[in-house]
Design a protein around this nucleic acid. Structure first.
Lengths: 171, 171
DNA sequence: GAGCAACATTTGAAATGTCAAAGGTTTGCC
DNA sequence: GGCAAACCTTTGACATTTCAAATGTTGCTC
């Protein structure tokens, strides 16, 4: 934005501040939310149909795939943004399906570490490849430059939100 | 690394360490998802603490607030992007709390119409005002121009996604 | 006017989600 | 040594979520 445009911009800001512009954030949020829901539902449907897996299971396995030595449940909880109690159940079901193993390390018996089994790794590998393709397809009509820009700008939003949380949510 | 000091957890780890060019869409998706989760959790916490309400209840009431004559459950389902079966339970609980009323119109007895009660309208009105403020606060660090741009560009993403769904479902 | 397809909602099973409280373990400190 | 605080996970109650099947209604056709 050049300085030569500043007069126009000032006018726009005044108008925005007094009228329409008040709900920009709300409008953005609603669009983010509906878009995210739309994509989530599509991914969930495909994971189910093609792999018999759920989205939370996929998310959890993604974290374990990145840490081949396994992760403590609390760490899994943080990375997946899922509550502790929820992680317990998720891992439990994945263990029943033979995709994940649970173990308690010798050093600290408070801890449970979850780890992908060989079968889990194989399955996730296939799911991840498909998953990436689905996203490319879904966003096929969007200019790559826009995608990159969105990644940046949403990062700014995420930062701002992180700095304005009410709950005891800092470390 | 500015984000790393917050409690924000990156689901973006999946992409880490791979080549730059190829996974833009995946990278964007993961950031959208984690940001949306972050904001949702904050709003849910505040709705709970300050109004004793849940986020899906808020969403549903928002639709009814815009249509004072009420909406059929199927229409509510579409607008909130929630399945039919889910709407049944949500409306049921809201009715128990005296915030919503259910009625069957004379013309068509297949239909159930849900409508806000006076108490529901009052409560939602207060929640909506607070909700809007929370979003403004959370996004306070983001340039208004960026917010507007994001709204536009996410619209493009939503459009693209809508045109590439597998389930026969687009409008 | 009987039957059938289309429509709208509910129901039921299974999974995910939150929160708060309870259960073990470890650590630090006197 | 012993105790209390801190830590990690599980449990339990309840709300939300999906899907598929069942239920009830309407409208159309023959």
């Amino acid at each position: 934005m050049t300085e030569s445009e500043s007069a126009t911009v000032d006018l726009e800001i005044i108008v925005q501040g007094t009228q329409e512009g008040k709900k920009q954030e709300l409008r953005l949020w609603l669009r983010m939310l509906s878009t995210t829901k739309l994509i989530s539902q599509e991914i969930r449907r495909r994971l189910r149909n093609e792999f018999g897996a759920t989205l939370p299971q996929f998310d959890l396995m993604a974290q374990l795939y990145r840490e081949r030595d396994g992760l403590r449940l609390g760490e899994l909880s943080k990375r997946t943004m899922v509550t502790n109690g929820n992680v317990t159940g998720l891992v439990e079901r994945l263990e029943t399906d033979g995709l994940v193993l649970r173990a308690t390390p010798d050093g600290d018996r408070r801890v449970t570490v979850a780890k992908l089994t060989a079968r889990g790794e194989t399955l996730f590998s296939a799911m991840a490849a498909a998953h990436e393709g689905w996203l490319r397809d879904m966003m096929a009509d969007v200019d790559p430059a826009i995608i990159s820009e969105l990644w940046q700008d949403i990062g700014a939003v995420k930062s701002s939100v992180s700095n304005h949380l009410s709950g005891a949510d800092f470390d």
